[in-house]
Design a protein around this nucleic acid. Structure first.
Length: 434
RNA sequence: GCCCCUGUCGUCUAGCCUGGUCUAGGACACCGCCCUUUCAAGGCGGCGACACGGGUUCAAAUCCCGUCGGGGGCGCCA
């Protein structure tokens, strides 16, 4: 056994509560969490709230909630940097005492020794070498008494006994600076791994245009946490050709940090949508029910008098046809309101023809006398009429679908007729003549 | 400007370390066909890539150099 394998892995996620949880941060958290859970180590949280003006409890609560939503749990209590200002100062004073730093006003600044090469053996990128000539002297404690990011980061990672730092590529240039601090504090640096950033599909920075940047936005849009997490994981680690759709449990089992990609990936909303559709399809209607209800409510539908049983049947009918939870409301709005919009092209094609209206008339008259409004019975009537009039069943089906839903697409006609109910079906079919 | 990371289908990637098994495999998207009551789902098929230029070698997607492209960083922000 190698020594590294018997020391417990400790990783951390260090959000700054100055905004919502960004997709990129969520991915970073996810990989750290995966690594900890895979190795049986610890996943710790550190709140980087040194900027008092910009940090807020509200953001922190949101971030923690989003993490939980994604299925990420953490060990121990989160460490708050705002409560450790004395520690940072003390450590900076130690370095100052060794004459490796100087004061400028109230600030304590670290002297960077020139002409050295700092080598980092990055877990993801391999060797990275930087010359200290390219690094300016580094502020440790600012004039206002607060620590700088790089300094607090080192003090805390050492204090928390972090063994591996997995973070975004944008921190590569921070790493040699931090290593200098580890040296000055006579500490052994942890292992570093820098994962490439996520880009929008046009190669630019991920932004609103690409579908949103915050976890919250995807949640609202009707993405399932397991789909989002699965997709984010795929953006940086390939679990194998047969494992693209994988649960967090499987990911924990299969995850191998040495297989992480060193190439920046573009965020592809299409693939996320596909994955989400896969998860929706496979999820039980029972589990989908509360989520769908919430979406319908937010969409503003009148849900009074609508039973869970009714929604469940709707979900059964539509869950293989939607890519996001929100889409059910768009596809099935006509179940909740009578003033649904009519597809213009479909209307021209199916409802503006007299023979089609005739068929609907005959169909509705027979439905009127139907006692048991089951889809089997409805279908029987429809097919009988088609046979009698020497038509294809489709000639009756399409105009009828349009009459009751305003749409040219959707779940099987007879099933949706049964669910919508005799009264509304008949009213809408008769409405065609007006 | 300087420093760092990076470059296989439109996108995510397998392969690269340990050259030949690669006329480069899979997934999403797209297109076509089948199924069918439309849309999905499902099945089958198609389109489609080693950034470019030099080396090294009997042989390079794989190794080396250069060019070009993409990204990040250079704060008393985090």
């Amino acid at each position: 056994m190698f020594i590294q394998e018997i020391i417990m892995v400790k990783v951390r996620f260090a959000p700054s509560p100055t905004g919502f949880l960004h997709l990129g941060s969520a991915r970073t958290a996810l990989f750290n969490w995966l690594y900890a859970r895979h190795t049986g180590g610890k996943f710790l949280l550190r709140i980087e709230d040194t900027d008092k003006a910009r940090s807020s409890k509200k953001f922190l609560d949101e971030i923690l909630e989003d993490l939980k939503w994604m299925g990420i749990d953490w060990d121990d209590e989160p460490l708050h940097q705002s409560q450790r200002f004395e520690v940072y100062r003390e450590k900076a004073e130690q370095i100052l005492a060794k004459e490796k730093a100087y004061k400028e006003g109230e600030a304590i600044i670290f002297k960077v020794e020139k002409g050295r090469t700092i080598e980092v053996n990055d877990i993801i990128h391999g060797k990275i070498a930087v010359n200290t000539n390219d690094i300016k002297d580094q502020v440790m404690i600012k004039s206002d008494g607060s620590p700088t990011y790089n300094f607090a980061c080192v003090v805390d990672d050492a204090y928390m006994e972090i063994t591996h730092i997995l973070r975004g590529d944008d921190h590569i240039s921070n790493t040699p600076k931090q290593i200098l601090f580890y040296e000055a504090l006579e500490l052994t640096p942890p292992k570093f791994g820098h994962m490439p950033l996520i880009l929008g599909q046009d190669g630019a920075k991920l932004s609103k245009r690409h579908g949103g940047v915050s976890v919250e936005e995807y949640k609202r849009e009707g993405f399932l946490p397991e789909a989002l997490a699965n997709y984010l994981i795929l953006l940086g680690w390939f679990p194998g050709e047969d494992h693209e759709v994988l649960s967090m449990d499987e990911a924990v089992k299969l995850f191998d940090i040495s297989d992480m990609s060193d190439v920046q990936a573009k965020f592809d909303i299409q693939k996320l949508r596909w994955l989400n559709g896969e998860y929706i399809m496979k999820k039980t209607t029972e589990k989908l029910l509360p989520l769908i209800k919430e979406q319908l409510l937010t969409a503003g539908f009148d849900m009074s008098g609508v039973t869970d049983d009714y929604i469940s049947k709707l979900v059964d009918l539509y869950k293989i046809r939607i890519k996001t939870l929100r889409e059910l409301g768009e596809l099935a709005d006509w179940f909740f309101k009578d003033d649904f919009t009519m597809d213009e092209e479909g209307k021209r094609k199916y409802l503006d023809k007299e023979e089609n209206k005739d068929n609907i008339r005959i169909f509705v008259d027979r439905l009127d006398g139907l006692e048991d409004f089951s889809h089997e019975n409805i279908e029987k009537i429809c097919r009988d009429i088609a046979e009698e009039r020497e038509l294809k069943a489709a000639d009756i089906i399409h105009p009828t679908r349009l009459a009751i839903s305003g749409k040219t697409k959707g779940a099987g006609l007879f099933e949706v007729m049964e669910l919508l109910g005799k009264e509304k079906v008949i009213k809408r079919m008769r409405g065609v003549d007006k």
